[in-house]
């Protein structure tokens, strides 16, 4: 099977910092890949390059065989790549549900200026997504009054609302209480499986990684240090020393 996403020899640097130093990675359709690595390793930068937020100085990004390098995020999003952010990116002055409805309108191109947003037929679907992520009770609240943990989940829900084929999650449950983490990830992974969504998630919690990832890529100094099954990667002595910290 040809890869859904192929990243070839991607480079980028910020002043003296090399944030991507010849990154190669292939994603198989339907898989769930975890990215681990120390802070500053270039994990977020990798997602920024894949989604067109940053243009690499060298290298290519292919989605379903098509070169998408340097296209703007909105074009890449329309091809079917959605993203949840490490720092939630939400419409702060709107309610949670209105955030979701804007996403639904964006997906279905519901730009008829005389049709009220509250009447969008995707309303129930959006509330369903919020329920899956356990934040349906905040639907009518304005985002700027919500705690960080809830905002993270709303940010993930916004990405899901686009019905992507590839979902990139940057530390999706950081800031979410550890008692809820697994419950939410269970629901999320189930939802991704049902819709056959391929996913990449950056994660620091090794228990989360071994439970939810099919494969793990270890980032270090702007490079992919190792790729393998969670068991293999977590058994590796270098990884245990550099990343896991034991």
């Amino acid at each position: 099977m040809s890869p859904l996403l192929r990243v070839e020899d991607v480079h980028i640097r910020f002043g003296g910092v090399v944030a991507a130093d010849g990154v190669y990675l292939d994603l198989e359709p339907g898989e769930s890949l975890a990215i681990i690595g120390p802070n500053g390793a270039g994990k977020t930068t990798f997602l920024n390059i894949c989604t067109g937020y940053l243009k690499p100085t060298a290298g290519r990004v292919l989605f379903e065989g098509n070169d998408i390098t340097g296209q703007p995020p909105r074009a890449i999003v329309r091809l079917g790549i959605a993203r949840a952010f490490q720092i939630p990116q939400l419409f702060l002055e709107h309610s949670v549900l209105d955030n979701m409805l804007i996403a639904a309108a964006a997906r279905t191109r519901a730009w008829n200026p005389f049709r009220a947003m509250v009447a969008l037929p995707e309303r129930a679907e959006m509330i369903g997504l919020l329920r899956q992520l356990g934040v349906a009770d905040t639907a009518e609240q304005r985002v700027d009054g919500l705690p960080e943990g809830v905002r993270k989940l709303v940010d993930v829900a916004l990405a899901l609302a686009l019905k992507p084929r590839l979902l990139l999650l940057d530390e999706p449950t950081s800031g979410v209480s550890s008692s809820e983490k697994f419950q939410i990830m269970d629901a999320l992974v189930q939802a991704l499986k049902n819709q056959a969504v391929t996913s990449v998630f950056v994660e620091h919690d090794m228990e989360m990684v071994s439970r939810y990832a099919h494969r793990v890529a270890v980032w270090n100094g702007g490079r992919v240090q190792m790729v393998g099954t969670p068991a293999d990667v977590l058994a590796d002595a270098d990884v245990r020393r550099d990343v896991v910290g034991i």
């Binding site: 989604t51 909105r74 419409f91």
Partner: peptide
Amino acid sequence: QSPLGQALSAVKSNETRLEYLGV
């Protein structure tokens, strides 16, 4: 009140997210 008008206030609060919704 339509999504297009609501997107106007979304321009005010977060253009990054708007872009990442494909807009």
